[in-house]
């Protein structure tokens, strides 16, 4: 039995699966393998009221928030490494009360995706006992009550039911599962059927993918299913988990894609400058996002010289010697 070809354009994939009010998670981490082509397409299609689940998804989350697509976010870390120790539009949105937000830790969020992926209602950890992550809740009781898809509790602390010995943990924190409507990943390789191969760190991509009702995968390279099956140990996700495959070279740009290209320091530095002010941020969106029709055009706008500078070299997998000031 053969599966349908899942290949489509980014505009089709976003239009088909991502609706206003959608619960969304994106793959990658801070400045690596964010599905930026998808993020920019969501912004262009002006899809709003998104509920985002994020561990440390720096650049993509910041641009979605800045463009007004996000109503609420559950997040562990809003930062883009040295380029923005605190994500700029995220910071502004929180300080001005524009979004609902709730804080967790990275492991908390990972466990929540994992619980969603496993089909259990929660997973336990000892992380966070005694902290304000346990005590202070960001979403108001009214907001939680009105959002029927959210658990009533941010998390719960219970006695360890299996405790016997003194050095067994006396308490555990229970983290509720997440099941996003859609997860979007950008990866190095996928087949037209949807089998996925990620090189380098997988972050929490696999848990996020498995937790979601729908999965969009964009890839640097579309390869034959047989090519991926020759060395199946390197594959992360089976084809039946994927709903849409988008061939999207430089799909993580301006964030990095290990083995393919580095992050673009010039773009990220410029973004930091422009994002600091509402007017200049609007100029940024007008030029780099709304001003282009698709990601290929953004790549043409930054130009082949810049893309050449960030091209990854072997064996390092990044642009060795790149000027990153």
């Amino acid at each position: 039995m053969s599966d349908p070809d899942k290949c489509m354009t980014m505009a089709e994939a976003v239009g088909r699966f991502i609706k206003p009010g959608c619960h969304l998670s994106i793959g990658g981490f801070t400045l690596n393998r964010n599905p930026m082509a998808a993020v920019y397409e969501i912004i262009r299609q002006r899809i709003d009221n998104l509920h985002l689940y994020a561990h440390s998804n720096g650049q993509g989350v910041d641009e979605l928030i800045g463009a007004g697509c996000v109503r609420a976010i559950e997040i562990a870390y809003g930062g883009t490494g040295r380029f923005a120790p605190t994500c700029i539009r995220f910071r502004r949105a929180v300080e001005s009360g524009q979004i609902h937000f709730e804080d967790y830790s990275n492991y908390h969020m990972t466990l929540r995706f994992m619980a969603g992926a496993m089909g259990v209602p929660f997973l336990p950890t000892v992380s966070g006992l005694g902290t304000d992550i346990i005590r202070k809740w960001g979403f108001s009781p009214e907001f939680r009550e009105a959002e029927s898809r959210l658990p009533r509790e941010k998390l719960l602390v219970i006695d360890n039911p299996f405790r016997r010995q003194d050095d067994d943990p006396p308490k555990v924190v229970l983290l509720p599962a997440i099941n996003p409507d859609v997860t979007i990943l950008h990866v190095q390789k996928a087949s037209h059927r949807g089998t996925v191969r990620i090189s380098g760190l997988t972050f929490a991509d696999v848990e996020q993918a498995r937790a979601a009702r729908h999965l969009i995968v964009s890839c640097e390279e579309l390869v034959e299913e047989d090519d991926l099956r020759r060395e199946p140990d390197g594959n992360q996700l089976p084809f039946f988990q994927v709903d849409a495959v988008v061939l999207q070279p430089y799909g993580a740009y301006p964030t990095a894609c290990y083995g393919c290209y580095d992050y673009d320091p010039e773009y990220l530095n410029r973004y930091r400058q422009l994002a600091g002010d509402d007017d200049t941020f609007q100029d940024y969106l007008d030029e780099y996002v709304y001003g282009v029709e698709n990601h290929e055009q953004l790549c043409r706008l930054v130009g082949p010289d810049r893309l050449r500078q960030i091209k990854a070299v072997k064996p390092q997998g990044y642009a060795a010697g790149l000027d990153r000031r």
Binding site: F29, T30, L31, N32, G81, L201, E207
Partner: peptide, 26 residues
């Protein structure tokens, strides 16, 4: 070989004993 500018920088992925994910690290 070069200083990473974030913990997700591709520079941390080179010549490791293991490239895993958040779940194993924590």
């Amino acid at each position: 070989e070069e200083i990473p500018l974030a913990v997700a920088d591709s520079r941390v992925m080179y010549h490791t004993a293991l490239n895993g994910g958040l779940a194993d690290a924590f």
